[in-house]
């Protein structure tokens, strides 16, 4: 008479145990990562990232502030180039103020200062202001696209998309 084996031996017990623990940990990790993913919404209702900014003839030499409040962009015309300069301080994301008398951008949070070109020269800002993608539509309108940024320290300010020759 052969006896039906009813008990696990030691080795089997431990292999079942480790499978159980691995499954349990994996399930916990899965739930945690789902909860984590939950905190990142798929859709978010933030302002448009691109806009039409008139024609090149609208701008005079210097800093133009008309798009600052709506889109967070300064249009700077200097040395034959028109660029769309981000108004977000590279230090901690405050909004610098354009000071026409001193010809500089000055950040109210920690006092970073930038030249008209966007290059930082004082205060704690680690790098120059960013420039946004800017080009002309077939109708001759200026289009600023904030999804693409050009950074000076990476040598991207010579990229033809980062300025308009005027």
């Amino acid at each position: 008479m052969s006896e039906v084996k009813q008990h696990l031996n030691r080795r089997e017990f431990f292999s079942y145990l480790s499978v159980a623990w691995i499954t349990f940990s994996a399930a916990c990790a899965g739930l945690l990562s789902l909860a984590f993913r939950f905190s990142y919404p798929n859709v978010n209702f933030e302002p448009e990232m691109d806009f039409l900014a008139g024609t090149t003839s609208d701008y005079e030499e210097g800093v133009d502030e008309r798009w600052k409040n709506g889109f967070g962009v300064w249009m700077v015309k200097q040395e034959g180039r028109l660029v769309a300069l981000s108004n977000i301080c590279t230090h901690l994301g405050c909004i610098p103020t354009w000071m026409p008398a001193e010809l500089k951008f000055k950040c109210p949070c920690h006092g970073s200062g930038y030249y008209m070109s966007g290059i930082n020269f004082e205060g704690p800002a680690p790098r120059p202001l960013e420039r946004y993608k800017i080009n002309l539509t077939p109708e001759g309108k200026i289009k600023v696209d904030k999804t693409k940024v050009y950074r000076y320290e990476k040598g991207q300010w010579d990229n033809p998309n980062s300025f308009i020759q005027v």
């Binding site: 905190s39 990142y40 919404p41 978010n44 209702f45 933030e46 994301g93």
Partner: peptide, 17 residues
């Protein structure tokens, strides 16, 4: 769009979310 600040603010800047 996917860093810790996005998780904290549910957006790219301090807005309604």
């Amino acid at each position: 769009k996917n860093d810790v600040r996005f998780q904290l603010l549910a957006g790219r800047f301090v807005g309604e979310p």
